[in-house]
Design a protein around this nucleic acid. Structure first.
Lengths: 353, 353
DNA sequence: TTGTACGCGTTATCAC
DNA sequence: GTGATAACGCGTACAA
C-alpha cells in the first residue's frame, strides 16, 4: 500500500513545485521551504516527512522563482574589452578559468560580457535588467560608468587594473616590480645592455613597467642608448617595427625587457626571421608565463605566478562585497621565475636552463 | 508644470516596475507590456505616452520576473569534461568564443559547466533547477544522461562528437578526411614514409583518424613499417614515449601525421630535444590550427577551418531546437591548409612556405 | 484595451 | 516552539 503510493509519486511527470511537495507531505509550503533551507522552526517529524517526499520526487526548487523572490540573480558579470578577452588573450583566459571555477562552486553563474564599443559609458544591459549581483571588470573601464554604478550601489571589482586609482577594489599585479625583477634577472646573468619593448596604449601600465625597468638599470648604474626604448608594441606589426629599431640601434643591446609574454614571443620571432639567434644574439624575458611560452623555440623564460588564483581571489572579494563585507585590494608582489631557454647567461656563455 | 513633473519622475530612485510605468502613463500594465514587446493592440496615442514615460524613467523589465513568467531561463549550458575545457584547450576555446558571441548577441547567457566526475550520468544541477533552456556538450557524454534528458524533452546538441551515433544533432569535423588530407599533403610533397601519432582514449575519434591515414597511404600504395603507428599520445609524456619509438624505428619515417596540433607540437619538441631538426629530419602536420601553431619554431603547418564559426553554428542549431525547429547535424568537410614551416618538400628539398 | 489570475519560492504575520 | 496563511515580486496571457 505504502509502496504503491511511493510509486505513484515517483512516476509523476508533472513538474514539482513547493506547493505540491507541501501537499504530498501534508504540511505547509513554509515548512517545506524551511526544510529546504535548513532553517529551524520545524519539528524533526515534519522534517523527515518532507525530506522523504523530496527524496522520492527529486524535487529541486525552481531557479527563476528563487531569483525573483530573493531579488538575487546568482549571476556575476565578467566585463571585458576586446583587448582583454579571455577567449583571445591567454593571460585572461587563465584568470577567467580560476574565476569561473570558484564562482561555479559557489553557485554563481559567470556571464561573459564583451565590450564592443571603444569605451563603455552606459550601464551594461545585464546590470540594467538586474540580472547580475555584481561585476568584475578586466583592465578597468570608463569612470563615467563607475559613477553610475556607484550611484546604484552596484558591487564591482577589478582584475588587472592599470591605473593608480587605489580607491577601487582590485586584484592586480605589481607590474613595476614584475619588470624590475625581469630586468634584475638579466643583470644577475651578466647583461648590461637592456632594451625595453612595450606598448603605451594603456598609459598607466606602461609607466609602471617602464619605472621598473629604469629602476633596475639605475640601481646597477647601467646606461640606456638611443633606440633601446620602444613603445609601439601594440600588435605583431608594432612589435616588428620596434624590434627593427632595437636591432638597428648603434649599440646593440644583449637583452630585451618586455611588458608581456606575447611581446617577447613576437619579438623573438622577428629576430629569428631576420636571422638572429635567440638567446645567443639577444635574450628575452616575459612576465606572464602564458602557456604559449612553454612551446616556443626557444621556450620563453618568464616570470610566473598563480593566474587562476587571481581569478579565484577576485571571485572571493566580489562575493564578499555582494554580501556587504568590504575587503581590501590585493596586489600580487611575489613571483617565481620560469627559467627556460630565452636568456643567455653572459657569465658563462650558456643559455640558462 | 509639465517640466516639474518630468523631473520628479526622472529623479525617482525607486526601482521601476511595469505597474509603476502603467500608473505614470495612465494605462494598464498590459498596455505597457505590449508597447515593450512591439505587439499591436495599443493605440498610437497610448504607445507614445508609454514610450515617453519609459524613456524618462529608463525602465527596463526585470530579468528574473521575465524568466518566471515566460518559463524560460535565457541560459544555455555549455557542458564539458576536463579534456575539453575551453579554458585549457585552445581548440575548444575558439569554439566557445564563437558560441558565446553568438548567444550573447541573441540575448542568451552561456553558463560554463565543467564535469568533474569521470563520467556524468546525473542530470546537471543547472538543468534540474530549470536554469537552462538547452545544453551544448563538448566531446559527447554518457548515454545514460542523454536518456534522462530525452525523457525530459530537454534540448541539447553536441560539438565535436567523437562517436558515430548520427541520431543526435551535432556540429563536428570530418576527422577522417582531416587526417586523410594531412597525409595527402605529405604525399603530394614527396613523402612516402608516414608515421601516425595519436591517442586512443577516445576510441571513435582514434578510429576515424586512423582510417584517414590508412586510406591516404593505401591510395598511394605506401607501406607502413612496424613502430610507425603510435597511439599513446595522451599527454606530453605519452607523446614523448611515442616519438621515442617512432624515431628508433628501423626504417625512419620522413613525416608524422597527428590527431591534433598539440600532439604535433609536442612531437616537434621531443625531436628538437633529441637533436633532430624539423622539418629537415622529420616533417609534422597538425589538423587544428590552434593559435599556438603560429608561434612554435618552426611554425606548424596545419589544416585550418572556422572554429568560432562552429561555435556559432552550434548556437544557431540549439536555439532553433529550443524553438522547436529541428535542424540537421553539420559536419565540416572543407578545410584549408595553413602552410607554415614544419613540412619538408621532398621534391625540391626545401621546407614549404 | 483593460483587469486580473497566474507562476512559484520566500518571508512576514498570525494562531496555537 | 510549530505550523499555516497570505502577501510579495513582476511580467504575461487570457478573459472580460
Amino acid at each position: 500500500m505504502q509502496r504503491r503510493r511511493d510509486e505513484r509519486i515517483m512516476s509523476m511527470e508533472k513538474k514539482m513545485t513547493i506547493k505540491e511537495i507541501a501537499k504530498l507531505s501534508g504540511v505547509s509550503p513554509t515548512a517545506v521551504s524551511f526544510v529546504l533551507n535548513g532553517k529551524n522552526g520545524v519539528s524533526e517529524l515534519t522534517r523527515q516527512k518532507v525530506l522523504s517526499v523530496i527524496e522520492m520526487t527529486n524535487f529541486v526548487p525552481n531557479a527563476a522563482s528563487k531569483r525573483l523572490t530573493m531579488k538575487k540573480s546568482f549571476n556575476v558579470a565578467l566585463i571585458y574589452p576586446v583587448s582583454a578577452s579571455p577567449f583571445t588573450d591567454m593571460f585572461y583566459c587563465e584568470i577567467a578559468a580560476g574565476l569561473t571555477e570558484y564562482l561555479t562552486e559557489n553557485k554563481y553563474n559567470v556571464v561573459f560580457v564583451p565590450i564592443k564599443a571603444p569605451s563603455l559609458t552606459e550601464v551594461p544591459d545585464i546590470i540594467k535588467i538586474q540580472d547580475a549581483d555584481g561585476a568584475i571588470f578586466l583592465q578597468g573601464v570608463d569612470k563615467l560608468l563607475l559613477d553610475k554604478l556607484d550611484e546604484m550601489d552596484f558591487p564591482y571589482i577589478f582584475i588587472d587594473i592599470h591605473e593608480n586609482d587605489t580607491k577601487k577594489i582590485h586584484v592586480s599585479l605589481d607590474s613595476e616590480k614584475l619588470v624590475y625583477e625581469a630586468a634584475r634577472y638579466f643583470i644577475s646573468h651578466g647583461h648590461e645592455k637592456l632594451a625595453f619593448l612595450g606598448s603605451d596604449w594603456l598609459p598607466g601600465y606602461y609607466i609602471r613597467c617602464f619605472n621598473g625597468y629604469q629602476k633596475a638599470l639605475g640601481e646597477s648604474g647601467l646606461g640606456i642608448m638611443p633606440g633601446w626604448i620602444q613603445t609601439g608594441a601594440n600588435d605583431e606589426e608594432g612589435v616588428y617595427r620596434c624590434m627593427e629599431r632595437i636591432l638597428s640601434s648603434p649599440d646593440m643591446p644583449t637583452a630585451v625587457c618586455c611588458m608581456s609574454d606575447m611581446q617577447a614571443i613576437q619579438g623573438i620571432r622577428y629576430c629569428q626571421e631576420k636571422g638572429f639567434h635567440v638567446p645567443e644574439d639577444l635574450s628575452f624575458i616575459g612576465i606572464d608565463d602564458i602557456v604559449l611560452s612553454r612551446y616556443t623555440t626557444p621556450p620563453l623564460t618568464t616570470l610566473t605566478y598563480d593566474k587562476p588564483g587571481m581569478g579565484k581571489l577576485a571571485g572571493e572579494l566580489l562575493l564578499k562585497k555582494i554580501d556587504g563585507e568590504e575587503r581590501n585590494s590585493h596586489i600580487i608582489t611575489e613571483f617565481g621565475v620560469a627559467e627556460r631557454k630565452s636568456v643567455m647567461d653572459l657569465r658563462n656563455g650558456r643559455s640558462t636552463s
